[in-house]
Nucleic acid binder design. Structure first.
Lengths: 200, 200
DNA sequence: TAAAAGACTGTACACATGTATAGGAAGTGC
DNA sequence: GCACTTCCTATACATGTGTACAGTCTTTTA
């Protein structure tokens, strides 16, 4: 996991400057996009100079990679947090979905960041979506070798299904909210909720 | 609609330089985002100098506005293209959905641009999502006063439903495609299709 | 034909960006 | 005490950015 051990000169925050940089970067990247966030903005938010960012991460892209790795870590932690007790596969999968959903609810910046990451991909770069796909594929393989997952679909189909179920609603919900925001008659009411499913 | 009348010095393309600038801007903004696209890139793609962009649009934000207005125009044209013949409301709405879907299929850049636009909003600026919402609300009002739309839901609910149906799948499909892309076993098969619906 | 208007270019400028680097401050091991 | 590493600041620089503007060419108007 990412290092939490307070190095020499830990700040009052209990977070290392290095960690603070990553955290602020995640928030700013999520809110304004990576391209629109300058290292100086990150530095100011973290109460640090630009030089230190360079010292710790070398380049902006490397900082971005570090942020993405932390995001993947959060997913991995959430999944790992639910015990693989002896129970039906469907229940285990559902429990994992819940754990991931809770993690995302606790870290809204992750959701925003992810939403952006989906748009930028495509290149051959090892990006966030690829890494999360890997993580999910690993999850499916584990379930299969434990005899807990159906083998009637291909692995690919199962991975797509899981990821869409976990992420789909989160990505589309802001559209619904943005639109609903423009109507007074929807002000008090609970927001309409999205239902996302897959057909072959 | 946006001016197509060839001004003085129309190029071989049949498009005015001004129109070409807007078109290239749309494509580049859609592909790389507004922030990551410089006016010089737009100028080069349009075979024009930066000065001319400034001459025609004044500022980058104004160019961006012009692009968005053209996108809204495309939606309005698509909707207006289907005659309001005497037929059941459901059929009319469905026909409009098809027209919009066809327009989007013909202009993939519009889809990409829109997908990005959803993320950036929030501010008080009159942005694309607001404008499209207005357009859809107008559509709903027209249907209502022609006695073609149910009045059992609020206008807001109807607008959200229409927009989500029209746009939802398009926004999420790239996620599905990106993930599917990572699996060889899905290479030949048709991509899984998304189904997006709303619950209250 | 002369003049006004608009399309268009090229250059210049102030500013923000990412990165490099020299050096100071603070902790650790001997 | 001293070297040594790590954390951190400050300054500098090359490059890319949006915008401004003076001037040229072309079309339109009269």
């Amino acid at each position: 996991m990412t290092e939490r051990a307070a190095g020499p000169r830990a700040r009052s925050d209990d977070l290392t400057a290095k960690a603070r940089i990553r955290r602020e970067a995640l928030h700013l990247f999520a809110e304004h996009g990576v391209g629109a966030t300058s290292l100086r903005t990150v530095a100011a938010s973290a109460g640090v100079t630009v030089g230190l960012i360079v010292h710790h991460y070398g380049t902006k892209e490397a900082l971005c990679d570090a942020v993405e790795l932390e995001v993947v870590d959060l997913f991995a932690e959430a999944i790992a947090s639910v015990p693989v007790a002896d129970r039906p596969a469907a229940e285990l999968v559902a429990a994992r979905d819940v754990a991931v959903a809770e993690m995302l609810a606790d870290n809204p910046a992750v959701v925003d960041y992810l939403r952006r990451a989906i748009l930028h991909g495509g290149g051959d770069r090892k990006d966030l979506v690829s890494r999360l796909t890997e993580l999910t594929a690993q999850q499916v393989h584990d379930l299969r070798s434990a005899g807990l997952a159906s083998t009637r679909q291909t692995v690919g189909e199962q991975v797509v299904t899981i990821m869409v179920r976990q992420l789909g609603r989160l990505f589309l919900q802001p559209l619904v909210d943005r639109i609903a925001e423009e109507f007074d008659d929807l002000a008090g009411l609970p927001r309409p909720q999205l239902l996302v499913s897959l057909t072959r």
